[in-house]
Lab assay of single mutants.
Amino acid sequence: HDTTVHINGLRIEVHGASEEILKWIEEAARRGVEAEEIKRWVEEALK
């Protein structure tokens, strides 16, 4: 999927993410993980 995830006011563009990654992002956000940190993880995961 190409999608934009909104976390604590930060937009994260996610290209080619699976449902699993999207669920993981939402879970991390709920746990209060910094949005910048999530963004870094997602970029690494999608390389």
Rank of each mutant, 00 (worst) to 15 (best):
H1P: 14
H1D: 12
H1L: 13
H1Q: 13
H1S: 14
D2W: 15
T3I: 15
T3G: 15
T4W: 09
T4P: 07
T4H: 15
T4R: 04
V5S: 05
H6Q: 11
H6S: 14
H6A: 08
H6W: 13
I7D: 03
N8E: 09
N8T: 04
L10P: 01
L10Y: 09
L10F: 09
L10D: 06
R11P: 10
I12T: 01
I12R: 00
E13R: 02
E13K: 02
V14P: 03
V14E: 02
V14D: 01
V14A: 05
G16C: 07
G16D: 07
G16R: 05
A17C: 00
A17E: 02
S18Y: 08
S18W: 08
S18N: 11
S18I: 07
E19R: 10
E19G: 07
E20S: 10
E20Q: 11
I21E: 01
I21C: 04
L22Y: 05
K23T: 08
K23I: 09
K23C: 05
W24Y: 09
W24Q: 03
I25C: 04
I25P: 00
I25K: 00
E26Q: 11
E26T: 09
E27I: 03
E27H: 04
E27G: 02
A29K: 12
R30K: 15
R30M: 14
R30W: 10
R30E: 15
R31F: 10
R31H: 12
G32P: 02
G32E: 04
G32W: 02
G32R: 01
E34K: 12
A35H: 06
A35F: 14
E36M: 10
E37P: 00
E37Q: 09
I38A: 01
I38H: 00
I38L: 04
I38W: 01
I38V: 04
K39Y: 11
K39Q: 11
R40D: 03
R40Q: 10
R40Y: 05
W41Q: 04
W41R: 05
W41G: 01
W41A: 06
V42R: 00
V42P: 00
E43Y: 10
E43A: 09
E44C: 04
E44M: 11
E44A: 13
A45C: 09
L46Y: 07
L46S: 02
L46W: 06
L46F: 06
L46T: 05
L46K: 03
L46A: 03
K47V: 10
K47Y: 09
K47T: 10
